[in-house]
Amino acid sequence: MTEIIRAEGLVKEYIQGGRPVRALDGVDLAVEEGEFLAIMGPSGSGKSTLLHILGALDRPTEGRILIRGVDLSRLSDVELAELRNREIGFVFQFFNLIPRMDALSNVELPLAIAGIPREERRRRAIELLKLVGLGDRMTHRPSELSGGEQQRVAIARALANDPSIILCDEPTGNLDSKTGEEVIGLMKELNLKSGKTFIIVTHDPAVAQMTERILYLHDGRIVGEKRREMP
């Protein structure tokens, strides 16, 4: 298998209340293409910060990240935006859909940003919403959808430009356990069918149970790793 993400000596410091805080303190990480990976750790351990940096939303204070061998520190902000648009999909705890837009328009957003023509955008969004099982809810706004449905829209949006990496920040954190399981099930299915790489930040052991590899983060460092053979 080929390595898709490599992080070397990641340090992230920021100033909080006038004092420097070290959110990441030397993280090394390698992710293979098609992996289904969980990152676990208590709150404040730096999980989300790590995810943001891996997703090119933020730059590390020290260290570097390579995605398919490309060093992100060498990319301009515009190039990072393009990378986020094409190569990376985000799924958040609070879904982060745009409330005034229906499911279709939310899914179309990354496609619109990529400059894809309207008709093709619509066709692709319909396809994706059907794929996540929302074929009959496409014109509903987020407020008219249940939590599980909203997260499915978010997953469809993350898949819009057919990225190879999907980064999930507590994707089940705002769902009941049954819905959460369904959502993770959907992700697992996408992982198996399309070979997309999933990195899931969670503190839910039930979610972690469904992954092949779990990294444990504590005080900004990776303190453990558990690998399992999946059936």
Binding site: A81, N96, L109
Partner: peptide, 15 residues
């Protein structure tokens, strides 16, 4: 937050 979402899905500052 909406601006954050736009940027997360790949909008450039210019967009």
């Amino acid at each position: 937050r909406e601006i954050g979402i736009l940027k997360a899905v790949g909008a450039k500052n210019r967009d």
